[in-house]
């Protein structure tokens, strides 16, 4: 029960950035609701999986591929290209903090000199960035890689 409350709170907080960034990408008004639902579902699914000790990369892959297939359904239904919903929906899962920590660590390595602690931060965050991002994009591309294989979706 407590977990359910946490998931609902997580979903609500994830819907806000999905809509916010969808507006930066100028997603049409009628599609904003799909971005909100997609963002909430994908992020809360990842939250749930990570709660059961699934690694963040695998949890991201599962969440983003479910978003990819959900986007496929919506896109066929509304005749709208898939990136319109899917990219905004996965924005809450983008490893932005990891990416910035990596580069700030690199800047620090240059200005303060080499140290093992900072190198450790750079390596760990850099690898997290790469693998989470790979999982995100691969998950979204999965329907067109597996099912459509070069044919147009809409």
């Amino acid at each position: 029960m407590e977990l359910l409350t946490l998931i609902i709170i997580d979903a609500l907080f994830a819907a806000v950035p999905a809509v916010g960034f969808a507006m930066v990408f100028n997603v049409p008004k009628k599609m904003l609701i799909y971005c909100a639902i997609g963002g909430a579902l994908a992020h809360s699914l990842r939250f749930l999986l990570m709660n059961f000790d699934v690694q963040i990369e695998w949890a991201t892959l599962i969440a983003s591929s479910s978003m990819g297939f959900l986007g496929l359904y919506w896109s066929r239904k509304r005749l709208i290209p898939r990136p319109v919903f899917t990219v905004a929906s996965v924005i809450p899962m983008i490893p932005g903090s990891f990416a910035f920590t990596t580069v700030i660590g690199l800047v620090e390595l240059n200005s303060a000199g080499y140290s093992i602690e900072i190198m450790q931060i750079v390596t760990e965050n850099g690898l997290k960035t790469l693998f989470i991002l790979g999982a995100l994009s691969f998950g979204l591309a999965l329907p067109s890689i597996l099912i459509y294989r070069g044919r147009p979706i809409v």
Binding site: F21, P83, V87, I94, F100, L140
Partner: peptide
């Protein structure tokens, strides 16, 4: 965060 260019790049 350049989220859209990054996802487009990988895809």
């Amino acid at each position: 965060v350049p989220g859209f260019p990054l996802i487009n790049a990988v895809s």
